[in-house]
Amino acid sequence: MKAFSYERVSDPAQAAARAAEVPGAKFIAGGTNLLDLMKHEIEIPQHLIDVGGTGLDDIAPTDEGGLRIGALVSNAALSADARVRKDYAVLSRALVSGASGQLRNKATTGGNLLQRTRCPYFYDTGMPCNKRSPGAGCAALGEGATTRQLGIIGTSDACIATHPSDMAVALRVLDAEVETVTPTGETRRLTLEEFYQLPGDTPEVENALEQGEMITAVVLPAPVEGRHVYYKVRDRASYAFALVSVALIQTPDGTGRVALGGVAPKPWRRDEADALLPQGASAVMERLLDGARPTQENAYKLTLAERTLAALLAQE
C-alpha cells in the first residue's frame, strides 16, 4: 500500500469541499472495498477523508411515505431495520445475500453503491485493464480469457466487468434515488439509472458523481405492495458474487418490476421489459436482454436469467 495522509471530517459539505480541493483525495467510510484495492495498489489515494463521523447513520421516514437511508447506515443495520423488512423485503433479502456477516457490519449504504465495477483481470495487476490504465486493453476480451462470471449486456469493447452489488439491484427495482452533496454545498438527487454509467470508451468512469461529490443518503419512495423476491444464483451457497440475480416485485394482478444483477456493469432493468411480466419470463427476458453480447463462456447467463425468473414466477 502506498502512503497517504488522513483526516476526519464531521460535516458532509466540508468533506465534499475537502475532496475537491486536496489532490488525490478519496472518501473512506467502511473501507471494505477501498482498502482491499489499496493493498493491491489498484487504488492509490494520496489523501483519505474519513467520513465515518459525519452522522449520516439513521433511517428516517420521508414526507412522501418512503425512507431516507443515511449513507453511513451499515448493510447489516439496513437489512435488519423493521420497516425495511416489512415494506421493502426485496432490499433486506438482497443485502443478506451479499458478502459475509463481518463485511455487512462494516460496509455502508453509500460505499456499497460506490464499490468498484470489477472482474478478476481488474484485480490482476499483471494483466492489461482499461479501468486501471485507460487504453491498456482488456484482458477479459483477449483470447482464452475466463469470462464465465462476467457481463453479457451494457458492456463495451473496452470492458465487460459487472457491478457486484446485490443491494443496488434491489434499490433499482424500488426506484430509489441517490442524494448527494456537491463541493459547493448543493444537494443533488439522481436515480440509480442516472447514477451508474455504462463503460463505453471510458470504463474508468463508473458513476455520475463529480470530483468531490459525496453520497449523503439513499431515498426510497413509498413502499410498492406485492411479493418481494431477491434470488441469487452463485457458485457456492454463501459469500460469492452472483452469476445471475433477480430482484422481483410482483403485484397481485400479475404486473410488476424486474431487475437483474450479475449480468451488466450496473443493475439491469428496462421499463418495457417490466410491462411484459404478465406474459411470463421468456417475454420479459427477450426484451430485458435484447442486445446482449455474451462471450462463448457466459452465454449461459441468458438461459439462467430466464429460467430463474420463470422459477420465481411459478412460485406463486
Binding site: Y6, G31, T32, S74, Q102, K106
Partner: peptide
C-alpha cells in the same frame, strides 16, 4: 475471517479497516 474481532459490539474483519478509523 481469521482476523475477526469485535468493534463496539459488532464483528468485523480487522484486516479491512485502518486503525486510525
Amino acid at each position: 475471517g481469521a482476523c475477526t474481532v469485535s468493534v463496539n459490539g459488532e464483528r468485523i474483519n480487522a484486516c479491512l479497516t485502518l486503525a486510525v478509523m
